[in-house]
Design a protein around this nucleic acid. Structure first.
Lengths: 334, 334
DNA sequence: CGCACTGATCGAACCGGTTCGACGATCATC
DNA sequence: GATGATCGTCGAACCGGTTCGATCAGTGCG
């Protein structure tokens, strides 16, 4: 391995001079800088990350904490991971992906050992056990998903309540009076993933305000339960003219279910949902839907985190930020 | 931050004694060991990863290099990532996930800076640009996917040729004489992902041996091309009685396509494919298929890598290992 | 009883960077 | 021509671990 000492010797300067030439923290004459630069490329020097971390207490790595649950539709989470990783790299950070079953313990481990400069937590629950160790860690963290206690944390999430109102309003504007709402599975509510009730409760509330009938039912994430549940719900509410599907697994299975039942969209049933453009393309979903913007959310999360890391908790107060929903009309309502 | 020096002071011993107590590399009296242990838990000591990496030249991190291409079905790769991550953790390693567009450069960066102890490369191409820097890095690497030059590398992959023969044999045994084969998209062949032609060529070869007619066509990964292509192929070969689908995107879209055409499986068409149980469940695919075992592949890859890391290239010669395919009969052939 | 050996511990050096304080040279200022 | 900045560079200390060699007490053996 080639060290900074090798470079210094080759360039005929001291180690500290090489370091300063690299960091630019002190002025170095053009001539010396060039000799150093030449030596670096000739020898192929790259600073040792461990040594750097030791000296600077910075790792240039961010931790990404996620977990795949049986009650979730796995491909959906992937949409967040890639933009996060790409954005991190753009900003000079690598990503340590942590999928431990015990998230709290894993978080403690990687923060206390100084493996990461900051953390991004996905799929945050109402009473998330990772928050206590996160607060104790003294490292910046950005959450995607809304917990109960937001004190001292940066949070990013879609405004699910506004999204629900937007969809109900949209359907009401088209004259629908009876709507089926498929929510996330019961287990997701139980796990405390707040978007599930934020969306549902806002939808129910808005329907009430507008005098609409809204039937809320839990969806499922896995086959064959998904299809069975969708069929049962459709059987139960034959007079409903519109549907809001707030569940990735259900919406992915919906085209097949409707096709088998001979239900035409939008002639027989207006269908709306909530998914990203990317997700819709992958699963060829033809529904008018609120865009969930995972790409934007991921980018914003990393930016926010890196700002905090750089400014050491300086750039203003912690805050909860909800992205405003936007509707993509794919012609599945009438 | 609490250091090993703090622990030593609290326990009334030297720093080296604490280190030895922790590593067990020299004998320590029971009494001292307990005092140290008590001090560690009381103070909440965790070794600094950077310092450890510097002193031992080991990071306990493995790099996972992957890339999502437009011509691929993104959810499919996820199946490999999770088992990899879980297995790594079981064996005491964290995972640095690298998704850079320039994989070769990224590989150089993380190996030369000593950020990882070893690497796993997914989706390896025939002439993969990452192999040169990998060989130069002097760190162990395990590939999933078969490159042209396997010298000095450990490789794991499904035996796609055997899988192809298995499916052709299966259909021939049922009396089919004319078979449609949907291969991965042309772009995948062009990128040099060898499983595409390993499977196709073996299927063609076997069909020839058995005197069967086999129509090979490129599939697509994205909507709406997937559906259009499948329909075109089915239109072209109306006398074919069986189908082999070797393409994630196509097989995920197939149920809908067949349903829309009114084709019953297996009465009108016998359908076989190649996907994992997990994948099949997520997309509710009902086809008899070769199991791709991403979970097992992931586990084996990490195990192999960790063995190499531990034994410093000692545990026997490098080798290419093909997992034998197994057929899961889901009743979609007759 | 003296000697070799083992077990438990310590101190110092080392891993490869960064950073602080000091120092000589150069240059403008009065 | 002395004074004080400023610039460019160096040496030493430091970050927090690990490991080598040495020391010392206790033990077994001839």
């Amino acid at each position: 391995m080639v060290t900074i000492g090798d470079v210094a010797r080759a360039a005929g300067v001291s180690r500290s001079t090489v370091s300063y030439a690299l960091s630019g923290k002190r002025s170095i004459s053009d001539e010396t800088r060039q000799r150093i630069q030449e030596a670096i490329t000739r020898l192929g020097f790259t600073p040792h990350a461990g040594a750097q971390a030791l000296a600077t207490a910075q790792t240039k790595v961010i931790g990404l904490m996620l977990r795949f649950h049986d009650d979730e539709f796995a491909p959906a989470m992937l949409q967040y991971v890639l933009p996060l990783s790409d954005t991190a790299r753009e900003m000079g950070y690598d990503v340590l992906m942590v999928t431990d079953a015990d998230g709290a313990e894993a978080l403690r481990r990687i923060t206390k050992s100084g493996k990461v400069d900051g953390l991004i937590l996905l799929d945050v629950a109402h009473n998330d056990p990772r928050l206590e160790p996160l607060r104790a860690a003294g490292k910046p963290g950005v959450l995607v998903g809304l917990p109960q206690d937001t004190d001292g944390l940066d949070i990013l999430d879609l405004d699910f309540a506004a999204a629900a109102r937007m969809l109900v309003d949209h359907l009401q504007g088209l004259g629908h009076r009876e709507i089926i709402l498929v929510t996330p599975p019961l287990e997701v509510f139980k796990r405390g993933i707040s978007y599930s009730w934020r969306f549902r409760d806002a939808a129910i509330e808005r329907a009430r305000e507008l005098g609409l009938v809204l039937h809320a039912h839990y969806g499922e994430s896995r086959q064959p339960a998904v299809g069975e549940t969708l069929n049962a719900v459709l059987d139960e509410h034959t007079s409903a003219t519109a549907m809001i599907v707030h569940n990735d697994g259900s919406v992915a299975a919906l085209p097949m279910v409707l096709h088998e039942r001979g239900v035409r969209v939008p002639e027989d049933l207006s269908v709306t949902s909530l998914y990203s453009q990317e997700f819709g393309r992958t699963f060829s979903l033809p529904y008018t839907a609120v865009e969930t913007s995972p790409r934007e959310l991921g980018r914003l999360a990393v930016r926010q985190l890196v700002d905090r890391i750089r400014d050491g908790d300086g750039p203003g107060p912690h805050r909860v930020r909800f992205l405003p929903p936007t509707l993509t009309d794919r012609g599945s309502t009438t």
